[in-house]
Design a binder for these strands. Structure first.
Lengths: 235, 235
DNA sequence: TAAAAAATATGATTTTAATCATAAAAATAG
DNA sequence: CTATTTTTATGATTAAAATCATATTTTTTA
């Protein structure tokens, strides 16, 4: 698979970006002076947990999962990223190693910006700090909510929640009910903090209850209201 | 119990503050122009989850627990605060309601600063944004780590971890081994995301293993290395 | 396209921790 | 200081989900 439409320069970027929206055309051009456009094949690692942070990654197109390593190699998916999202900014700002591993779920195009360009833009642009603070508060809010969900909800509720997160993150295909992402049962397990087996059983159960349909890796949400209900107060 | 030593004005504050350290004496004076010093009796609520955020709380002296409400009333302790820590800044910055309930674990003195003063200081002081970003990244890091811990660790590991968090947050008494905080088993359970009964059993077990000693609400860590070991790879 | 590998599926068993129940001890209030 | 409430403690039972085992399907790759 070859890059078909390579990312343009930042000043011509068509994505609604997380934080660079407020920049002028000139500033955007500055930003992209020495940027690289990289193609990441499905399954490839963009950066690893613990690695020294030198770059800001800006997803032009694709789907990325961010995972953290837990006890005896078990992974936990902490977040996803797709078009317009940036990765690695926390490590750059905090001058810490990358806190998670980023893996492409799909063939992805990701722009790699240098730490120096990123910092020079922040310094010149006070609006940027506010945007970053906004991003961080949102992430923190969802992380804390996720903590409570995982602690207090059953596996069924958590798997239902995971499907809703996938829907909110990647949306549906044109049919309006098929999740616009191919993801393994193991990955859903890593989202919900459970095992692959339990996830498979739960998906089968949700299918029996006519809430979802399964077709290989395609997951079709036939009754979203029931699913929402399930994520919240599952029997 | 009466206030014995009321908090001074900010420019005379003796605490190593989370974010106001970098301010000049003049700015600190500005900050405290219309501040209130409030006394919160042990057990009283400082603010509630979902409440409209109007103030920044700055802990002068005391111990605060921050909890979020989960399924059918079960609480999760998300964080603690003590001298020098600020509360509520996230809600002020994000213009959202308070995301957690703050309850005094001890008789506490807390300075209440107005949203307006806080914002005027931020606007005039670019350093502040960086400090806030730093705080947020730290909180986010620990929230994500906590998520993995709670998902992947056993109750014993989580309770051991909770004791270590208490030690890191509040330290020891003069004897160098008694936790400097009186906290109920139920609260430890709310930290570890388990039940009160399981917490009591686990503490009894840690006592049997000569890792801790229990004396009413006093918890004495007699073998911290074993406890650390226990939190990480508990058998 | 066939073989190998990986992912999905399902059953049986075990383990962990929650729940239910009750008693004892400690803290608080009157 | 005593009564009442709250917290701590411990046992018995149940329930949820992990683990172990194995089969089937799907995907990958040679």
């Amino acid at each position: 698979m070859k890059p078909i439409d390579l990312p343009p320069h930042c000043d011509n970027c068509t994505n609604n970006n997380d934080i660079f929206c407020a920049l002028s055309q000139g500033e955007k051009r500055m930003l992209s002076i020495d940027k690289n456009e990289n193609f990441f094949k499905k399954g490839s690692i963009i950066f690893s947990e613990g690695e020294h942070a030198n770059n800001l990654y800006c997803v032009y197109k694709g789907k990325i999962k961010l995972t953290k390593l837990g006890k005896d190699g078990k992974e936990q998916i902490v977040r996803f990223a797709s078009s317009g999202n940036i990765l690695g900014y926390r490590s750059l700002l905090g001058n810490t190693p990358y806190q998670a591993k980023a893996i492409a779920l799909d063939d992805s195009y990701i722009c790699v910006l240098s730490k120096e360009r990123f910092f020079s833009i922040i310094e010149k642009n006070p609006m940027m700090s506010l945007k970053i603070i906004q991003l961080l508060t949102e992430d923190l809010k969802s992380a804390e909510q996720h903590l409570i969900d995982i602690t207090q909800k059953t596996v069924k509720e958590r798997v239902a929640e995971a499907l809703l997160i996938l829907k909110n993150t990647f949306g549906f295909l044109m049919d309006g009910e098929t999740l616009n992402v191919k993801i393994s049962r193991a990955d859903i397990a890593d989202m919900a903090g459970t095992t692959t087996e339990s996830t498979i059983r739960t998906l089968a159960l949700l299918h029996e209850e006519k809430i979802i349909q399964l077709n290989g890796k395609s997951i079709i949400i036939t009754n979203i209201n029931k699913l929402i209900n399930c994520a919240a107060i599952c029997d």
